[in-house]
Design a protein around this nucleic acid. Structure first.
Lengths: 224, 224
DNA sequence: CATCGCCGTTAGGAAGCCGTGAAGGTGCCT
DNA sequence: AGGCACCTTCACGGCTTCCTAACGGCGATG
């Protein structure tokens, strides 16, 4: 479940948001002061913060800074001021989005979804495990059942793109564009060729791939 | 260097933005129509798109869809309308941020930085829940009670259109036009065929659908 | 009750897409 | 020059997807 921390000193607004968020399946935490907000973020595993700038104890940007000291959780800022400078300050401090009061619930929900979506898959540092495979994108090392597998540069770009988007469908167009550049070509058969190559090296049974999945007419996806 | 594609039919604004962006070290590409925008995004390696919704040739959301067909590049939408529904539509369609005209250059620059920063560290993932169904339009993943369900391209376009308009009735005409193109055909039975296919794959009991609802004589509706 | 219009369902052929092996080309190293 | 690793191209067979046609169910209408 996705956990939201809502920070506002208007308890009535807090209650209203709690109801809406709970109805949409979010786990809701609340705080009415900046200090309480920071404490709540430390204590619970929060996925996204909705933060009002006009708090009694701390300046809004200070709260952002305090949060950013220990987390990269997405922060959506609420403010009564339409002031552009405020926005810039908040965004530059590390906020992810800015909504002006009064706002529609639908709008906030859409921005919430967008924020969570963006943050959902974390940038990986170490190796990614997928069954018998272990893939370290940074170090460019793949192991299959412990044995290191050698990949050529093009095979790497292909695997890298798919693994970074693991689970997601990656369109044929995007694959071609990001690996072979923006130049249009008539033949696109090399994609098929390299996919076969990758499967031969990585899959237990290339004819029935478990990880490098074809989506006919669309593209490919990496499944862990 | 970071490459920005600015799309607007106001050439004066285009020139102003080009100057500001170039001064800040961005590589700037421009387009004045939706089609030109898509072409430019295909030809060059773009890191972020600034897109005006009021273009002469295509509807703004169509441009977003066209771009999302082959890239996950961040899109910042510009619009003269402060309309909240517009915002929600654009964001749900795959835009990343929304700025209302007239805007301050500083604000746009801040949002641009934020968008590029987010894109650098996070791929995205945003699923919509409807009972036992979980639908992620961007990643093209549907799960039914946790199990992944495979859909063909046409099934996806159909589901995509319905889910984007979830709760609302989508007319038969609109469905046909947006999925099979503007070409008029005599027979329209394939819509029924694909709807049956979708129901078979997604509904618990295809004979009594809970989500893919028929509105006799008019069209279909997706109910969450 | 017969008819009509609309919808759901199934099946099968046509078209397009994909996997695969093989061959030719290029640049690099020995 | 020769060998090697890698990239690109091509052709063919198999598989997926799309579209059409046909039929039966259901409700409205006269």
């Amino acid at each position: 479940m996705t956990a939201v921390l809502v920070v506002d000193d208007d308890t009535q607004l807090l209650r209203a948001l709690r109801i809406h968020l709970a109805a949409r399946g979010y786990e809701v935490h609340t705080a009415v002061t900046g200090k309480a907000a920071v404490r709540a973020a430390e204590e619970h595993e929060i996925d996204v913060v909705v933060l009002d700038l006009g708090l009694p104890d701390l300046d809004g940007t200070e709260v952002i800074t305090a949060l950013r000291a220990f987390t990269t959780v997405p922060i959506i800022v609420l403010s009564a001021r339409a002031d552009s400078g405020d926005k810039v300050r908040a965004l530059d401090r590390g906020a992810d989005d800015y909504v002006i009061k009064p706002f529609g619930v639908d709008e906030l929900m859409a921005r919430l979804r967008a924020a969570v979506r963006r943050a959902a898959t974390t940038p990986e540092n170490g190796a990614i495990d997928a069954g018998e495979l272990s893939i370290d994108l940074a170090a460019k090392i793949v192991r299959r059942s412990g044995d290191e597998v050698h990949l050529t540069p093009t095979e790497w770009s292909l695997l890298d793109l798919l693994v970074r988007n693991r689970g997601r469908l990656v369109g044929r167009k995007q694959l071609l564009r990001e690996i072979w550049g923006p130049v249009e070509r008539k033949e696109t058969s090399y994609l098929r060729v390299y996919m076969a190559q990758l499967r031969r090296k990585l899959e237990r049974d290339p004819a029935h791939p478990e990880h490098l999945i074809t989506e006919a007419g669309m593209g490919y996806r990496f499944r862990a």
